[in-house]
Design a protein around this nucleic acid. Structure first.
Length: 428
RNA sequence: GGAGGGAUCGCAUAGUCUGGUCUAGUGCGCCCGCCUGCUAAGCGGGAGGGGUAACCCCCCACAUGGGUUCGAAUCCCAUUCCCUCCGCCA
C-alpha cells in the first residue's frame, strides 16, 4: 500500500510514477484525495463533539455523586447529550464509509516503481544486464524435457491428470529423488552459506494474509480457495513469510531478518489456460524455495543486490547458463518497486526460463501488513522494507537440468553439486 | 464437534460483581536524563494510532465487531485466538 501522505504532498508526481506501469491512475488518486479531505473534516468535527460529550458526561457524573441527578439542570444536560449522541453516531457512520472507501482504493494501487527501474511498456523493454555461461553444444538434436522425462519414466503427466486434472504431474523414482535433492541442497546453501533462517509455514492462509502480501484483493482469481473455512492455498511462500511479522514492531538491532522457506505453490493459472504449455513449465502445483528479507529502509537497495546474488549462486553452482534481466516499470509485480528476473537456458525448448523474480517491495507490504521497526527504544515506529525472490522455482530447474544435462545415450547427468544429495550421478 | 476457563499500555498483574476521581493503578524489564570513583540503588521523564510539518491540545485504543447508556475496561450479543477436559483422527 502506498503512503497516503505521498499522495497528498505530490499528487501529480504520484500519478505520473504509477502511470509508468502502463495504466491510468489519475481518477483513482483524485478520488482518494477527495475522500481524504472529507475524512479529515469529519474527524475534526467529530473530535469537537466528543470532547464536549466527555466533559458534560463527566459533569453529570459529578452531579449524580452529589445527589443532584434529579435536578432539572442535570436532566436538561442528559437530554441535550442524547441529541449530541445521535449526531456523533451519524458522523461516525459517515467516517467509516470514507475510511473504508479510501482503504479499498489504496489496496488496489500498486507500488511506486523505483526511480532506478527502466521505464517501459512491455517485456521487450526489460534490460538484460548480465549473461553467464554458454548454451551447451550437442552432437545430437537435444530433446524437450517432457520427451526425456517420459523415456526415463521420471515424470507422469497422465497420472497427474487422472488424479487432479490437466497441468498436474507426478514425479517418480529418480525424478522425485532429484527434486528432493534440489530442495535440500538449496535450503542447505541458503541456511549455512547465506545465513537465512529456515521456515516451514502454513500452506493455507487467511485472506488477511493475502491482503498483507498484496495478492488480494486484485489477484484472487489466480488462487485456490476453500470457501467453507475461507482458507486460501498459497501461490508462493512470500505470502506466509510476509505475515510472519504482521503487526510487529521490531527493533533495528533485529534487522535484517532473512528467511528461507521451501513450500509447494498453488496457482489456478486461469489466464494461461489456452496457451501451449507442454511439460512442467507452467503447472497448478509446484515446489519453490523462497528467500525473504525484512530490512531497514535505507539498506533495501543493497539487500536486493545481495538477494539477487544469493539466487544467482544457485544457477552458478548448478553450472547452468543464465542471465539477469532488470524489469522495466510495466513488468514489475504489483508490490515491487524494483525487480530482476533470473532466467536459465533450456537447451531442449531453446528458450530462457524464468526461475526467479527478485523484488524490492520497499514499504508496500509493510504498510499493508503493519510491520514496523524502531531505530531506538524511544523513537517512533517506522515501516520497514521487505524483499523477496525465488531461489529457485523447482520445476524449471528440473527442466534445465534434464535438457542441458542430457546425454547422447538418452540419460541425464546429475550436476556435481547435487550428487552427494541424490546419491547417484545419472538417471537412465 | 461438545463442556468449561481466559484475553487489560514490553512482561506480570489490579480494576469487571456494584458503569462516572480509570486522563487504566502496581511490580519488573527497557530507553533518555539527573545523581555517582564505576556499577547498583535513588529521583525525574519516556515508550500505540489519528487530527498536526511539528508543538500545545483534543480524539481514539483494555482481543475484534456490534448493542445498551448522558457516560462502558466494567453490562448485553456475536466473532476470533489461547488453555483445560471429553469425543474423533494421521
Amino acid at each position: 500500500m502506498i503512503d497516503i501522505n505521498e499522495l497528498r504532498i505530490n499528487p501529480k508526481q504520484s500519478v505520473h510514477s504509477l502511470e509508468n506501469r502502463g495504466d491510468n491512475y489519475d481518477r483513482a488518486i483524485s478520488d482518494i484525495l477527495k475522500l481524504d479531505a472529507d475524512r479529515k473534516k469529519t474527524i475534526s468535527e467529530l473530535d469537537t463533539l466528543k470532547a464536549t460529550r466527555n466533559q458534560v458526561s463527566k459533569n453529570i457524573g459529578v452531579a449524580k455523586n452529589q445527589g443532584q441527578f434529579k435536578d432539572t439542570e442535570t436532566k436538561k444536560l442528559v437530554t441535550s447529550m442524547r441529541t449530541l449522541g445521535s449526531r456523533i453516531a451519524k458522523l461516525e457512520k459517515q467516517l467509516s464509509t470514507f475510511e473504508q472507501s479510501i482503504l479499498d482504493s489504496r489496496l488496489s494501487l500498486p507500488n511506486f516503481p523505483s526511480i532506478h527501474s527502466p521505464i517501459g511498456s512491455d517485456e521487450s523493454e526489460n534490460i538484460v544486464i548480465k549473461t553467464h555461461g554458454t548454451a551447451p553444444v550437442f552432437s545430437f538434436s537435444p530433446k524437450h524435457h517432457w520427451e526425456i522425462a517420459a523415456e526415463l519414466d521420471i515424470i507422469d503427466f497422465e497420472q497427474g491428470a487422472k488424479i487432479a486434472g490437466s497441468k498436474f504431474f507426478v514425479l517418480k523414482g529418480k525424478g522425485a529423488a532429484l527434486q528432493r535433492a534440489l530442495i535440500t541442497w538449496m535450503l542447505d546453501i541458503h541456511t549455512t552459506v547465506n545465513k537465512y533462517t529456515e521456515i516451514i509455514p502454513p500452506y493455507l492462509v487467511k485472506p488477511t494474509s493475502l491482503l498483507g502480501s498484496g495478492n488480494l484483493p486484485k489477484f484472487g482469481d489466480n488462487i485456490y480457495h476453500d470457501s467453507e473455512d475461507d482458507l486460501w492455498l498459497i501461490p508462493t511462500a512470500e505470502v506466509p513469510l510476509t505475515n510472519l511479522h504482521r503487526d510487529d514492531v521490531l527493533s533495528e538491532n533485529d534487522l535484517p531478518l532473512c528467511y528461507v522457506a521451501h513450500t509447494p505453490c498453488f496457482r489456478r493459472e486461469k489466464a494461461a489456460a489456452g496457451k501451449e504449455t507442454r511439460g512442467i513449465k507452467r503447472v497448478h502445483q509446484f515446489d519453490k524455495v523462497e528467500l525473504y528479507k525484512f530490512v531497514v529502509p535505507e539498506t533495501s537497495e543493497d539487500e536486493l543486490q545481495q538477494l539477487l546474488r544469493n539466487a544467482e549462486s544457485i544457477c552458478l553452482s548448478l553450472e547452468l547458463p543464465y542471465r539477469v534481466v532488470e524489469l522495466c516499470t510495466s513488468e514489475l509485480s504489483f508490490p515491487a518497486s524494483r525487480g530482476y528476473d533470473l532466467e536459465i537456458w533450456a537447451a531442449g525448448d531453446q528458450e530462457w526460463l524464468e526461475v526467479s523474480t527478485c523484488s524490492n517491495c520497499t514499504d508496500f507490504q509493510a504498510r499493508r501488513s503493519n510491520i514496523r521497526f524502531k531505530r531506538t527504544a524511544n523513537s517512533k515506529p517506522e515501516f520497514l522494507h521487505t524483499l523477496n525472490g525465488s531461489a529457485l522455482a523447482i520445476p524449471r530447474v528440473l527442466i534445465a537440468i534434464m535438457e542441458n544435462y542430457q546425454q547422447p545415450d538418452g540419460s541425464i547427468r546429475i550436476p556435481d553439486v547435487l550428487q552427494p544429495y541424490t546419491g547417484f550421478d545419472r538417471i537412465g
